[in-house]
Every structure is written in C-alpha cells, then in structure tokens.
C-alpha cells in the first residue's frame, strides 16, 4: 500500500504543481524518485512532526497541497493539537498520511502500532478518513484525495498486502463496497484485514453460512446506506478492524444501526479489546494473539448466528 501511495502521489505531482510531500524522516528509498524529480516539493522536516503539520497548514494557505507522511502514531497522536487547530478548525487543505495501520509494524511494539488513530481522527470536525484495503485501492484513493478539498486522514499499511481488487477498480469516496453477496450475516471491515475477512467468508460458505462482505474504505463520512441495507437484508452484522474497539469503525457502525435501523439485528464488533499489544511476532501472529485473525472471525460468526 505504501508503494502504491508513493507512486500515485508521484503521478499526481507530475500533473499538479501544487502537490508537495512533507516527511518526518520516514520513507527511505521509496520517495527517492519523487525527491529527485520534484526537489522543491519534497521536504524532510526532520524528526519534528508537530512542526510538519503547522508548516503544511501554512503551505496550504498559500495554495499548496501538502501530503504529510510518517508512521501513524507520530502523525496522529503526537501532532493531534496541530491537526485540530491548524488543519481542522481552519479547514486547511492538508493531507495526513499515516503509514503502518493497525499492528503491521508488529515487532516494533506498541509505540509503533496504530490502534487509536481512527478514534481520535474521526472525532475532529472537518476531517475525512480513508482506510484502503489493498494496494490498488491505496493508489486509487490517493488520486481521489488530491481532489478532495480540506483535511483528509489516509490510513495505509506498509508493503506486501495481498491484492483484493483488479486494476480496473474504481474508487468512490464515501461509498462502501460490497465485495461479495450473502444472506445470513454481513462482515464489515476496513484496511488490510478486509482480506482476512474475505478468507473467513469463504470458509463460512463451505459451512453453509452465506456471508456478505463489505469493505468500508471511507470511515468518515460513513456510507450509512450500505450498512442499513445489510442490516435489513441479513439481520446480523459483525465489524472487523485492526484498531481498538473503543472508538473504531465498529462503534461508528453501531451508532448508525442504533439510531437509524428499524431491523432487529444481531451485532458484534471484532477488534483490539482495549489493550496495547506487547506480543512480538509476525503481523499474522499478532492478529491471532489479539483475537482478530481469520479463525476468530469464523468462530464469532458461528456463535453470533447459531
């Protein structure tokens, strides 16, 4: 997803001279081409994230379109008040790109995991949040973000996520995607864990459970229609995210259902259970440890709809 983002940003920068990349000393090698071809428009601000956001807001006020980039907790939590005041209150055209969604920086430990970013970003007025599921979506979303006026938080993975979409995939900001149809239960996920969710749905199908899978790439504004339709038609919803249960995608979806759905539905959220992850291993191993792996999804579905 990271490479897809960087190469899409390069494409846009070639056409739109206002595009800039601001990095807080993260992004070795992958940004080399951008840096070489647009030296004026690449600024490594150093290990100084708060300043990066303020500088970006100043640049945006002069017509630039800065994409700020570093590891997720450092660009969301560390800089939170700069994002709130300099970007959101003033509706600045600044893009916040957090690399390393969820637990993907598995061995780097809880300082580098991104498990609260959705919660703290979604509560900011004017902020929009996009969380792509695979490299193709990451690329298409990057093109879309450059066209959106105002603040956007873009939550991407790193490298090696499996592909979900074909090259001709069309990204529509604010619209959820039904990845596969189903009647008995709906799984709603965001980010690279959409892939695990699809794999779980395949196995559930073998067990005779018809499972709908929805990818919510735009967490804010949320596509209520696709959620309400799923509630109406399947009567059971499980949300899956690589994020704390407190304040994540699942809590947004729960609010929509509670306020607007007329259907009686069964509902369950899968995510991190309000704890930091100090377990070390591969990304997949961490997901298993935290109870958000494919097998966990399968067993939650079975126990919810039995």
């Amino acid at each position: 997803m990271r490479n897809a983002y960087v190469s899409a940003l390069y494409d846009i920068a070639k056409i739109n001279k206002q595009i800039m990349s601001l990095n807080a000393d993260i992004g070795a090698i992958v940004f080399d081409k951008f840096k070489a071809d647009f030296p004026d428009r690449f600024v490594n601000v150093g290990v100084a994230e708060q300043n990066m956001i303020g500088v970006a807001a100043g640049l945006a006020s002069c017509g630039k379109i800065p994409f700020t980039y570093t590891i997720t907790p450092f660009i969301t939590a560390r800089t939170y008040e700069q994002i709130r005041v300099d970007v959101c209150i003033q509706n600045s055209n600044v893009k916040i790109v957090g690399v390393g969604a969820g637990l993907v920086y598995s061995t780097l430990g809880p300082t580098h995991h991104a498990i609260e970013d959705i919660a703290i970003m979604k509560t900011l007025p004017n902020m929009k949040i996009i969380s792509p599921a695979d490299p193709i979506e990451s690329k298409m979303a990057t093109y879309a973000i450059a066209e959106i006026k105002g603040p956007v938080y873009f939550r991407i993975g790193t490298a090696g996520e499996p592909k979900i979409y074909d090259e001709d995939y069309e990204f529509t900001f604010g619209k959820g995607v039904e990845i596969q149809p189903g009647e008995d239960v709906t799984l709603i996920a965001t980010g690279s864990i959409v892939y695990d969710t699809i794999m779980a749905a395949r196995e559930l199908k073998k067990k005779g459970i018809s499972t709908r899978v929805i990818n919510i790439h735009t967490i804010k504004p949320l596509d209520k229609d696709i959620i309400l339709k799923a509630a109406r038609e399947t009567g059971a919803i499980i949300t899956i995210e690589e994020h704390n249960l407190e304040g994540g995608l699942g809590s947004s979806i729960a609010s929509v259902i509670l306020e607007e759905s007329r259907s009686q539905i069964k509902f369950k959220r899968i995510g991190l259970k309000d704890s930091f992850c100090s377990f070390y291993g591969t990304h997949q191993e961490l997901k298993s440890y935290c109870g958000i792996a494919k097998e966990d999804i399968i067993s939650e579905v079975i126990s919810l709809i039995k």
Partner: peptide, 16 residues
C-alpha cells in the same frame, strides 16, 4: 502554533 504556520507560508513564498 503561529511560527510553524508562518514558516509554511514563508517556505511557499520561497518556492513561488
């Protein structure tokens, strides 16, 4: 907040 914001404006001035 003002100085970072101002530095961004000043940098834009240099670039432009």
């Amino acid at each position: 907040h003002g100085l970072s914001f101002g530095a961004g404006m000043a940098l834009a001035g240099k670039i432009n």
